[in-house]
């Protein structure tokens, strides 16, 4: 007795697998952006579902700001190894040292500096397509994003002139130097991501669960206190991101809802210690996921501006 019915996770999954396979079919040198965060964890499972028993036919790429949570890096490396994938890491530090990226005076966040590093890696490896875990429900500039998002030879997004995307027919044609960003999770919500992680029994970095951590108050958020600066021969990588004497400090029971790096991730007070707890918390949440991202608070168009410049 078969019931030809698919639930919402099945529908989102089959749509995403279809997109993964279109990438493998249409591009010569695709890459998958894997940060170790919850969205890209789903991407890896979808890649397994799309391509096993073969190898996943693309390497993984991560751009490090140098301010990562150590738990995330450990998880990222371990997971890539488990899957037998090649992991390419490029860092903002390298780009600063080589002059490929320059920090704006007074700016602490390295979020924008990821753009030249990502574009540099795309050029270095001649990637023609990068799969990312961005979702349309995250942010309103992303709500306008296509599954197959065309970038010109400068890596720029032109939101006013996007290719119409009709039925499930994706136009992957490029000229030399151009590339595509592809977002298989476009139609997923934060809730879908957690329900899928739970259903698939996927491991996530420990910082998504409740733990005790020292934080400080800045810009309406609780930011984690960065690790101590021990190597006095080098400048402090967290200069500007350390609590000032006037800023309130607190040891909290908290977790991350979304992960950027340590200086732009607000910690949320939470006792959630299981997937069910997290799902219940997301269901009851009264602020959006990106409400805890300092990088998006810069202005109403912060995301749009970064995307136009080549951000993922």
């Amino acid at each position: 007795m078969t019931n030809y019915h698919l639930d919402h996770l099945d529908l989102l999954e089959t749509e995403a697998i279809h997109i993964m396979r279109e990438v493998a079919g249409e591009f010569e040198r695709p890459v998958l952006l894997f940060s170790g965060g919850k969205d890209s964890i789903c991407l890896l499972r979808l890649a397994e579902k799309a391509f096993r028993p073969s190898d996943i036919p693309m390497p993984f790429l991560n751009v490090e700001t140098g301010h990562e949570f150590p738990e995330l890096i450990e998880f990222r490396d371990r997971r890539a190894k488990q899957l037998g994938a090649k992991l390419i890491v490029r860092t903002v530090d390298q780009a600063l040292a080589s002059g490929a990226a320059t920090q704006a005076p007074g700016e602490v966040s390295r979020n924008k500096l990821q753009i030249p590093v990502l574009l540099g890696a795309i050029e270095e490896f001649r990637f023609d397509c990068a799969i990312g875990g961005a979702r349309r429900d995250e942010e309103k500039a992303r709500a306008k994003e296509r599954f197959f998002s065309f970038r010109d030879s400068f890596g720029q997004w032109d939101p006013k002139n996007q290719r119409p995307e009709i039925w499930n027919l994706y136009n992957g044609r490029l000229n030399a130097g151009e590339n595509m960003r592809v977002f298989p999770l476009s139609n997923w919500t934060e809730m879908d991501v957690w329900e899928y992680i739970k259903r698939e029994k996927l491991e996530v970095p420990s910082i998504y669960f409740s733990h005790t951590r020292e934080c400080f108050r800045r810009g309406g958020q609780w930011l984690p206190v960065p690790p101590a600066h021990t190597d006095a021969t080098k400048p402090d990588p967290y200069a500007g991101a350390r609590p000032k004497p006037t800023e309130q400090r607190k040891t909290m029971v908290c977790r991350v809802r979304t992960i950027a790096d340590m200086i732009s991730t607000g910690m949320v007070e939470s006792p959630a210690s299981s997937f069910d707890d997290i799902i219940a918390e997301v269901a009851a949440a009264r602020v959006t996921e990106r409400g805890s991202r300092a990088d998006d608070k810069a202005s109403e168009a912060a995301m749009e501006d970064r995307k136009k410049a080549g951000y993922f």
Partner: peptide, 24 residues
Amino acid sequence: NLTDGLRAEREQGITIDVAYRYFA
């Protein structure tokens, strides 16, 4: 302003392109 996500849309009070919204 909820659906008009791009700066040009807010400036000109128009909607440029297809925007996707999710609710449950």
